[in-house]
Every structure is written in C-alpha cells, then in structure tokens.
Amino acid sequence: MSATVAQNVVPVDITVNGVEHHAEVEPRQLLVHFLRETLGLTGTHVGCDTSSCGACTIHLDGKAVKSCTVLTAQADGASITTIEGMATDGQLHPVQEGFWEEHGLQCGYCTPGMIMAASAFLETNPDPTEDEIRHALEGNLCRCTGYQNIVKAIQYAAKKG
C-alpha cells in the first residue's frame, strides 16, 4: 500500500488567517475542533450536530463551508479564514460593520457563521435582492433576530461594496 495509507495521525499543513500551521491530527478530528481546540480560535461556534445551523461557517479556500462537516485531514493544504481573520488592520469587514450598524445580532452566537456565510455570498453576488439574501442564509440559523436586521446588515455591506 502507498505511504498515504493506515495512519493513526494525519499530518496536515493548513494556513489559517494567513498563518501556516503544521499539525498531526487524529483522523476523526473535525475541522471546527482543530480551529477551536488546537488553535484556540473560539470565534467559530458549534450549534448543532446535523450540519444545519451554520454557526461553524468558515472560508476554506475562499468558499463558505461548515467546519463541523469537514475533517481536519481533508483540509490539508487549504487556506482558511475564520471570523478572527475578517478585520484587517483594525478595520472591520463591511459585513461586520453592517451587522453592528443594523443591529444584525443579539446574543451573537450565530453571528460569526452568519458573517462568514454572508461575506462569501457577497463575493459571488455583490448586489443581491432581499430574496437572494434570504436564500443565501438558508444554511445559517438565528434564533434571536428574526433575520430582518441580518438582511439589512448584508444590504448595508453590499451598498458599501
């Protein structure tokens, strides 16, 4: 068998928020736990077991994914951005700013995942309709806001470009 077979630990090289990390991980470790437990990046949250809530959404090679449904091993070689990497040089990302301006959060638990999903969405659709925004958020659940101010937050960010 090839050298890639039969390992109790998997060596991975993953870039997170611009920093390269090498680690040996258990095959079963979920990416969200690599971020939270191994790297201490606790801004990425876990809210369900069924890939439903999106609180764990991050960018993996530029695309929004649910980090609870990816093995760390699968992310070998990938570049990841988490909520902690969204603001640059102390400047909030426009989506972060939108959430603040429009009261797009209450408890804040779903918010990092919302921001990651919304920012990836705006990359592909910079001028969305309200309906497109609502459908883009189908994988992200919020129990506090009733979504209206989240929609407004994303509209704010879209306007800001």
Binding site: R36, T42, I83, H103
Partner: peptide, 18 residues
C-alpha cells in the same frame, strides 16, 4: 448601536465552550 457588538462580530465573545 450596541456596545456589546464589537466583541461578538470579531469572534472575541467568551461563551462557555470557549
């Protein structure tokens, strides 16, 4: 706008699992 938001929108909130 709320003063609790900056920490929550940057991932700096401290929830129990954190």
């Amino acid at each position: 706008k709320r003063r609790e938001d900056p920490r929550l929108i940057t991932g700096a909130g401290q929830f129990i699992d954190d």
